[in-house]
Design a binder for these strands. Structure first.
Lengths: 177, 177
DNA sequence: ATTAGCATACATACCAGTCTGTATGTTAGA
DNA sequence: TCTAACATACAGACTGGTATGTATGCTAAT
């Protein structure tokens, strides 16, 4: 064993940036988990598949996350939340014509099928997990509320500029989804 | 063991009408599977839960269906298909005002939350299984096509009667979902 | 008596999660 | 400054539980 340890010594220089990069490892886990959860749903998402996709092992996963549930929560809070913000909330800030802006986003989503259900991933997960897990429901609702608030805000802005009629829009935006 | 077997003899009389009714058994399995699949999705649907809900055992299930996949296919082809026909296709046959008829169906669905996602079960299953399983995709598409054809037909009828404008409606009806 | 219809016990595989070990980074003391 | 001691980050075997699917036996019905 001592001999094995000595023989197992790798060249220690460089690759130090590849190895021992916890933030990168954690991010890879989150991305891999997000993809797998999107493909199979949370319950059917296999930990081993996520690990293979991320290129790490169980030790790494359970060092960064307490359990599968915590991993799922982190995916919602960090990956999905960031995606929604990036594709919906941010483009809607300081825009004049909200109707055309919304149409533009939808059209852009339709072109890239990857992003299509990246937005729908919120809805898919909600359909699957909201009735079963309060933690998921809370987090998904938070994201959904943020999205609704963003669209409502831009619609209000459109009312000021006169390009949107004066009706109830906040709840209407929710009803659309 | 022989003694135990003899001791395990139950009173054999009556319930003969309950026992040995293969069609009823098969139907109970389909209904229970449909409920469980709606609740948890197909992949996460537990066979044991379905069996408990149906009140039968594995032997009965695997006598009537080859495996879980075949059970799922049968649910799509028989239960879901019949539901869609019952709530959508049939009410649309020989109707004069298609717009009001469609609105009426949707309103009726909104009242009964059980039927709401009985219709959406088609969509949910498609979301989950279409990318993963060609068999599911084919069967679900068949049902969807039938529904689309029915709505398109009634819209065409409405065009003749003058209550619907002359635009492209067949593809429009598909786009709505 | 034979078989269709079903129950029960079991085989097998997979899954999340744990445990132990180990290599690497960091810090404190001599 | 060198190193011992510790903390961090990760690997991989292992375990208990649960899942689907199977093998076999019993029984009602024809």
């Amino acid at each position: 064993m001592l001999i094995g340890m000595l023989a197992a010594r790798k060249n220690p220089k460089r690759r130090a940036t590849r190895l021992r990069d916890p933030e990168r490892t954690r991010e890879r886990l989150l991305q891999a988990a997000s993809r797998e959860i999107y493909r199979s749903g949370f319950q059917s998402a296999s930990i081993d598949t996520i690990l293979a996709s991320a290129g790490v092992t169980k030790g790494a996963l359970y060092y960064h996350f307490e359990n599968k549930e915590a991993l799922g929560y982190a995916v919602v809070e960090e990956v999905i939340s960031a995606d929604v913000r990036g594709t919906w909330v941010r483009p809607l800030r300081s825009v004049k014509d909200p109707i055309n802006a919304l149409i533009g986003i939808v059209q852009r989503l339709s072109v890239r099928p990857e992003d299509v259900c990246g937005g729908c991933q919120l809805n898919n997960l909600a359909q699957e997990m909201s009735p079963l897990d309060a933690g998921f429901r809370k987090r998904l609702e938070t994201i959904f509320d943020a999205w609704r608030e963003a669209t409502a805000s831009v619609l209000r802005q459109g009312q000021i500029h006169g390009s949107v009629r004066r009706d109830v829009e906040t709840t209407d935006a929710a009803g659309l989804l």
